[in-house]
């Protein structure tokens, strides 16, 4: 019997996860287009004509975009307990348990913390780019805002730690430990190479962005090993 004549229900070859990824990619196209057009418009208006982004700045922008995107997706998911339940409780095909309100609050908080991290990361190079030359007064205002955001985000991080279960806490603690040992070692080697005039000098901004990307990569690896991707 040909497939067209079969009474069997047609099973889609595209998994729901792949379909969602495809929809997000398509949705990202206009967002990227208009964001790019806005940034180019700013450059045309002379807002960041003198801005020459360093490698660290580019890393910061990339990381900030990733964090804001991940934060918005997480917060968006948390706005629907049914959708969140599908994502985090999706082991049982008979009935997906909707997320509890505590879980929804936890993921909304996680989304907010990610968005704030992205905003803080992008703020310094963005301020330099948009207000070129950046006056000391404006720089102080940006720094004050950053300190306020940092304190707020730290409270958010501590709240997430308190509300996490033991697997999540273990994953965070392992990520922190591995990151510290790895980057402390790398920092020493780079500093020694710099002292011996064998390596170029790094700014603190460059070093911070490299460690931040490394931290995220380590957290994803440890999360994957602990089964968070399952």
């Amino acid at each position: 019997m040909s497939p067209e004549m079969s009474n069997e229900p047609q099973v889609s070859k595209v998994s729901p996860r792949a379909r969602r990824a495809l929809i997000l990619m398509i949705a990202g196209l206009p967002v990227g287009f208009f964001a790019g057009r806005w940034l180019l418009g700013l450059r045309r208006d002379g807002h960041w004509g003198g801005f020459d982004p360093s490698g660290g700045d580019m890393l910061a922008f990339l990381l900030a975009a990733f964090l804001v995107f991940a934060g918005l997706v997480t917060a968006g998911l948390a706005s629907s307990r049914k959708a969140l339940g599908r994502r985090i409780n999706g082991d049982d095909v008979r009935a997906v348990t909707p997320a509890t309100s505590a879980q929804a609050r936890f993921y909304a908080g996680q989304g907010l913390v990610l968005v704030l991290a992205g905003a803080m990361l992008a703020a310094p190079p963005l301020a330099v780019a948009l207000f070129d030359p950046l006056s000391p007064l404006l720089a102080s205002a940006v720094m004050t805002g950053l300190i306020a955001l940092f304190l707020f985000q730290t409270v958010g991080n501590i709240t997430l730690w308190i509300r996490s279960d033991e697997l999540m806490r273990r994953t965070m603690a392992e990520t922190a430990a591995v990151s510290f040992v790895l980057f402390q070692g790398l920092l020493f080697l780079w500093a020694a190479g710099e002292k011996l005039a064998l390596l170029p000098a790094l700014t603190l901004w460059d070093a911070f962005n490299v460690t931040m990307i490394g931290y995220l990569a380590i957290s994803m690896l440890i999360g994957w090993r602990r089964g968070f991707a399952d």
Binding site: I88, N89, D91, T97, T100, Q103, D165, E166, L167, M168, R226, G227, F228, D230
Partner: peptide, 12 residues
């Protein structure tokens, strides 16, 4: 839910 942990913890 009965153990007050996440589903990911049970899976792990």
């Amino acid at each position: 839910q009965r153990l007050d942990v996440s589903r990911q913890t049970i899976n792990a």
